[in-house]
């Protein structure tokens, strides 16, 4: 069965600071994750800490920050176990981040 990683992107500087709003958004993600587990399509996934917490390593040494500077950063990911790209898209399309100002990237995993 092909596997896909769904990367969730969001503009780092536009995350809401409203506590209630944030809680509501996170609740949507919880529900979505539970749905995927119930459907048996998601094998693993996790939110990621703010990208300011990232440490990058290049040949020259450690860098305090992300490997690539970008306005929109990966804020979480899911690994999907589905028959094909259509099925992966159908699952990824329901990701709540799509109506929270972000987007997702569906990328096949090899072997």
């Amino acid at each position: 069965m092909p596997r896909y990683t769904v990367f969730m992107y969001h503009p780092e500087d536009r995350r809401t600071t409203d506590e209630a709003q944030l809680a509501a958004e996170l609740a949507e993600h919880d529900t979505y994750a539970q749905e995927m587990v119930a459907e048996g399509v998601m094998t693993f996934g996790s939110p990621l800490a703010a990208h300011t917490a990232t440490t990058s390593i290049r040949a020259g040494g450690l860098v305090d920050g992300p490997y690539l500077e970008a306005k929109e950063t990966v804020v979480g990911f899911y690994v999907l176990d589905v028959p094909d790209l259509d099925a992966a898209i159908a699952v990824a399309r329901r990701n709540p981040i799509l109506h929270q100002g972000g987007g997702v990237e569906v990328r096949p995993m090899t072997a």
Partner: peptide
């Protein structure tokens, strides 16, 4: 091949 785009007839809702 690499993205796993399936060769199938879409479901009615798609």
């Amino acid at each position: 091949a690499l993205s796993g785009i399936p060769c199938r007839v879409p479901e009615p809702e798609e």
